[in-house]
Protein backbone atom coordinates (compact mmCIF):
# COMPACT_ATOMS: atom_id res chain seq x y z
CA UNK A 1 0.00 0.00 0.00
CA UNK A 2 1.29 3.47 -0.85
CA UNK A 3 2.53 5.60 2.00
CA UNK A 4 -0.26 8.07 2.74
CA UNK A 5 0.83 9.89 5.88
CA UNK A 6 2.12 13.47 5.78
CA UNK A 7 5.62 13.66 4.28
CA UNK A 8 8.19 16.27 5.32
CA UNK A 9 9.33 18.77 2.68
CA UNK A 10 13.01 19.57 3.34
CA UNK A 11 14.13 23.18 3.20
CA UNK A 12 17.52 24.62 2.34
CA UNK A 13 18.48 24.75 5.99
CA UNK A 14 17.24 21.22 6.70
CA UNK A 15 18.51 19.46 3.55
CA UNK A 16 21.53 18.10 5.45
CA UNK A 17 19.27 16.76 8.19
CA UNK A 18 17.04 14.87 5.78
CA UNK A 19 19.84 13.74 3.42
CA UNK A 20 21.72 12.23 6.35
CA UNK A 21 18.57 10.68 7.76
CA UNK A 22 18.20 8.89 4.44
CA UNK A 23 21.70 7.47 5.03
CA UNK A 24 20.70 6.32 8.51
CA UNK A 25 22.36 9.15 10.42
CA UNK A 26 20.90 11.74 12.80
CA UNK A 27 22.47 15.18 12.50
CA UNK A 28 21.91 18.26 14.62
CA UNK A 29 22.65 21.92 14.26
CA UNK A 30 25.27 23.12 16.76
CA UNK A 31 26.01 26.66 17.93
CA UNK A 32 29.72 27.42 18.35
CA UNK A 33 28.94 30.35 20.66
CA UNK A 34 26.53 28.54 22.96
CA UNK A 35 28.46 25.28 22.60
CA UNK A 36 25.15 23.50 22.40
CA UNK A 37 23.33 21.39 19.86
CA UNK A 38 19.72 22.25 19.15
CA UNK A 39 16.67 20.86 17.43
CA UNK A 40 15.06 21.67 15.03
CA UNK A 41 17.80 22.74 12.62
CA UNK A 42 17.97 26.39 11.65
CA UNK A 43 20.96 28.22 10.20
CA UNK A 44 20.67 30.86 12.90
CA UNK A 45 20.91 29.81 16.57
CA UNK A 46 17.64 30.34 18.46
CA UNK A 47 19.13 30.68 21.95
CA UNK A 48 18.77 34.09 23.58
CA UNK A 49 21.17 35.55 24.46
CA UNK A 50 23.71 34.19 21.97
CA UNK A 51 26.96 36.00 21.23
CA UNK A 52 27.04 35.03 17.57
CA UNK A 53 23.84 33.37 16.38
CA UNK A 54 25.15 32.81 12.86
CA UNK A 55 28.22 30.84 13.97
CA UNK A 56 26.60 27.42 13.70
CA UNK A 57 27.47 24.08 12.11
CA UNK A 58 26.22 20.51 11.68
CA UNK A 59 27.23 17.69 14.03
CA UNK A 60 26.32 14.03 13.97
CA UNK A 61 24.29 12.82 16.93
CA UNK A 62 24.95 9.50 18.63
CA UNK A 63 21.36 8.39 18.11
CA UNK A 64 21.04 7.62 21.81
CA UNK A 65 18.16 9.18 23.72
CA UNK A 66 15.86 8.78 26.70
CA UNK A 67 12.08 9.01 26.79
CA UNK A 68 10.96 12.47 27.99
CA UNK A 69 7.22 12.02 27.55
CA UNK A 70 4.74 10.21 25.33
CA UNK A 71 1.13 9.54 24.47
CA UNK A 72 -0.55 6.47 23.01
CA UNK A 73 -2.87 7.72 20.32
CA UNK A 74 -5.98 5.59 19.91
CA UNK A 75 -5.05 3.36 22.84
CA UNK A 76 -7.49 0.43 23.08
CA UNK A 77 -9.83 1.97 20.48
CA UNK A 78 -7.61 1.79 17.41
CA UNK A 79 -8.95 5.17 16.33
CA UNK A 80 -6.39 7.42 14.63
CA UNK A 81 -6.94 11.16 14.18
CA UNK A 82 -5.76 11.24 10.57
CA UNK A 83 -5.96 8.94 7.55
CA UNK A 84 -2.88 6.82 7.02
CA UNK A 85 -2.00 6.37 10.67
CA UNK A 86 -2.71 3.02 12.25
CA UNK A 87 -3.64 3.30 15.91
CA UNK A 88 -2.49 2.67 18.46
CA UNK A 89 0.75 4.50 17.87
CA UNK A 90 3.12 6.24 20.24
CA UNK A 91 3.96 9.92 19.87
CA UNK A 92 6.90 10.97 21.99
CA UNK A 93 9.32 13.67 22.89
CA UNK A 94 12.75 12.21 23.45
CA UNK A 95 15.82 13.78 25.02
CA UNK A 96 18.89 13.22 22.87
CA UNK A 97 22.24 12.40 24.42
CA UNK A 98 23.51 15.74 23.07
CA UNK A 99 20.85 17.65 25.04
CA UNK A 100 18.02 18.75 22.76
CA UNK A 101 14.60 17.18 22.73
CA UNK A 102 12.82 16.15 19.54
CA UNK A 103 9.40 14.89 18.50
CA UNK A 104 9.20 11.35 17.18
CA UNK A 105 7.47 7.98 17.41
CA UNK A 106 8.45 5.08 19.61
CA UNK A 107 8.54 1.91 17.52
CA UNK A 108 6.92 -0.88 19.52
CA UNK A 109 4.38 -3.66 19.02
CA UNK A 110 1.16 -3.33 21.03
CA UNK A 111 2.16 -0.29 23.07
CA UNK A 112 0.85 0.04 26.61
CA UNK A 113 1.50 2.65 29.31
CA UNK A 114 3.36 -0.03 31.27
CA UNK A 115 5.81 -0.74 28.46
CA UNK A 116 6.73 2.92 28.20
CA UNK A 117 8.69 4.33 31.12
CA UNK A 118 9.84 7.92 31.17
CA UNK A 119 13.63 7.97 31.25
CA UNK A 120 13.95 4.61 29.47
CA UNK A 121 16.92 4.37 27.06
CA UNK A 122 16.19 4.52 23.35
CA UNK A 123 18.08 4.42 20.09
CA UNK A 124 17.31 5.90 16.73
CA UNK A 125 16.01 3.81 13.85
CA UNK A 126 15.08 5.07 10.41
CA UNK A 127 11.89 4.35 8.53
CA UNK A 128 12.15 4.78 4.78
CA UNK A 129 8.94 6.38 3.62
CA UNK A 130 9.84 7.72 0.14
CA UNK A 131 12.85 7.65 -2.19
CA UNK A 132 14.08 10.85 -0.53
CA UNK A 133 12.83 10.70 3.02
CA UNK A 134 13.56 8.49 6.00
CA UNK A 135 11.97 9.41 9.33
CA UNK A 136 14.11 9.11 12.45
CA UNK A 137 12.17 7.15 15.05
CA UNK A 138 13.23 5.56 18.31
CA UNK A 139 13.02 2.09 19.82
CA UNK A 140 13.75 0.84 23.31
CA UNK A 141 17.32 -0.41 23.74
Amino acid sequence: MAYNKPIPVPQGESDVYWQNAKKGELWLRYCNSCKEAYFFPTDICRAIPCANPRDTKWIQASGKATLYTFAIVGYETGKAPHPGFEAPYVTAIVELEEGPTMPTNIVMDDPTPEKLQIGMPLEVVFEDITDEIALPKFKPV
Binding site: P6, P10, H82, F85, M102, I129, K137
Partner: peptide, 23 residues
Protein backbone atom coordinates in the same frame (compact mmCIF):
# COMPACT_ATOMS: atom_id res chain seq x y z
CA UNK B 1 5.37 21.65 12.35
CA UNK B 2 4.58 19.77 9.12
CA UNK B 3 8.27 19.06 8.69
CA UNK B 4 9.07 17.73 12.16
CA UNK B 5 5.86 16.83 14.02
CA UNK B 6 3.00 16.03 11.66
CA UNK B 7 4.81 13.12 9.95
CA UNK B 8 4.84 11.39 13.35
CA UNK B 9 1.12 11.78 13.86
CA UNK B 10 1.30 14.81 16.14
CA UNK B 11 -2.11 15.74 14.77
CA UNK B 12 -4.78 17.44 16.83
CA UNK B 13 -4.41 19.02 20.25
CA UNK B 14 -5.32 15.90 22.28
CA UNK B 15 -2.01 14.39 21.16
CA UNK B 16 0.03 17.43 22.20
CA UNK B 17 -1.71 18.07 25.52
CA UNK B 18 -1.74 14.41 26.51
CA UNK B 19 2.03 14.28 26.16
CA UNK B 20 2.30 17.31 28.44
CA UNK B 21 -0.03 15.63 30.93
CA UNK B 22 2.07 12.46 30.86
CA UNK B 23 5.14 14.49 31.78
Amino acid sequence: DPQYQTPYGFIGQPVAYSMAARR
